[in-house]
Design a protein around this nucleic acid. Structure first.
Ligand SMILES: [Mn+2]
Ligand SMILES: [Mn+2]
Ligand SMILES: [Zn+2]
Ligand SMILES: [Zn+2]
Lengths: 146, 146
DNA sequence: AAGTGTAATTAGAATAATTCTAAATTAATT
DNA sequence: AATTAATTTAGAATTATTCTAATTACACTT
C-alpha cells in the first residue's frame, strides 16, 4: 500500500517534475510523500527503511536516484552536517538548521528573508549566490518543568 | 627541511596545545605552518601531499590525526561543502565561505559579528549554539577588464 | 645512562556513504 | 505488437575517513 500525496502536493509534485521532463513515478511519489508526512530530516538509509515498509521491492539505488531527482526539482532540500550522511528536508521556507551535538536532534530555525538579504550584501558584486546554508551546532538544554 | 612557524604563531600554537596537555610535535607544527602559509582551504589529502615535500616520512593517518588535534585546539577550522572532502581554514575571524560551483574556488567572506548575533536572536532560548557555519553556493562571474 | 610509562606516529586494514555499471522493467509512441 | 527511451534494480566499485596494532619518541625516574 503506497503512500498517497494529497491533491495539492500531487499537483506540485507533477508540475515540478514536468519542468525537467521527468516522470512522476510511483517510487518518486512514495519517497516524496514519506518525507512530507514525517517532517524530520531523515538520511537516505532511513528513507530506504521506511520505504520498504510499504513498498518492499524498492532498492537503495532507487532511493538515492529519487532523492537526487526531488532535490534537483526543488521539491526537497539537502542538509549536511560535517561528514554525516546527507539528510533531506521538506521545508522550503527560508530557514536554518540547528544540530544538537548531544542528542543528534535537528531542528528547523525559521529566519526572515531580511537576514538572507543582509548576508548577500556582504558579498563582492561578482559573486552570485544560488543557495545559502546556515547551520548552528550546539546543544539544546532541557527546560525544567518542576 | 621542516616548515617553521614565526615566533608569534609558535607561542599561540604551543599554548593552544598545552591547554589540553597535548604536545607540540614537529608533525603538528609542520601541518599548522603549511596551512597558515598558504591561505587556501586544502583537503587532508592536499595537505598530505604538501607535507611530504618537506617531511617525506609523514603518514596520511598522522595528517588526519594532526588536523583533528589542531581543530580541537581551536587553531584551525573545518569547512564542509555538501559531501566533498573536508577542508581546513586558518582564518579564525568571523566569516562565511563562498563555494563557486563552476570553478571549485572557495573564498572567505568576512562578516560583522552583528550578523552572527542577529542570527542567534532567532533561536529559542534553550538552544545554545557553539558554532555557526554559513556557506554560500553559487558562481563567481569574471569581471571584464576590456 | 638506563629503564619505565605515556603519547604520538605509522602502515595498512576496515568502514560506510555514495556512485557506478549493466541488465531488467516499465511506460510511452509508432 | 514492435520500438524506443526512461527508470529501476542488484550488486560492484569508489573513496574519504576511521580504526587497529605495532613502532617510535620523549619526559621522568632510578
Ligand atoms: Mn573502521
Ligand atoms: Mn564508482
Ligand atoms: Zn529543515
Ligand atoms: Zn575560511
Amino acid at each position: 500500500m503506497c503512500m498517497q500525496l494529497n491533491p495539492k502536493y500531487k499537483t506540485i509534485f507533477k508540475e515540478a517534475l514536468e519542468i525537467s521532463s521527468l516522470k512522476p513515478t510511483k517510487q518518486r511519489e512514495h519517497i516524496f510523500s514519506l518525507i512530507l508526512n514525517k517532517k524530520d530530516h531523515p538520511t537516505a538509509d532511513e528513507i530506504f527503511t521506511r520505504s520498504r515498509e510499504t513498498m518492499p521491492s524498492i532498492s537503495l539505488a532507487t532511493v538515492y536516484n529519487c532523492l537526487e531527482t526531488l532535490v534537483e526539482s526543488g521539491l526537497i532540500r539537502q542538509v549536511n552536517f560535517e561528514r554525516e550522511s546527507t539528510r533531506y528536508c521538506p521545508n522550503l521556507k527560508p530557514h536554518a538548521h540547528f544540530h544538537c551535538k548531544k542528542t543528534g536532534a535537528i531542528c528547523d530555525v525559521d529566519l526572515p528573508v531580511s537576514i538572507f538579504n543582509s548576508l548577500k550584501k556582504h558579498l563582492p558584486k561578482n559573486f552570485q549566490p544560488e543557495q545559502i546554508d546556515i547551520n548552528f551546532n550546539g546543544s539544546i538544554h532541557k527546560t525544567k518543568n518542576h
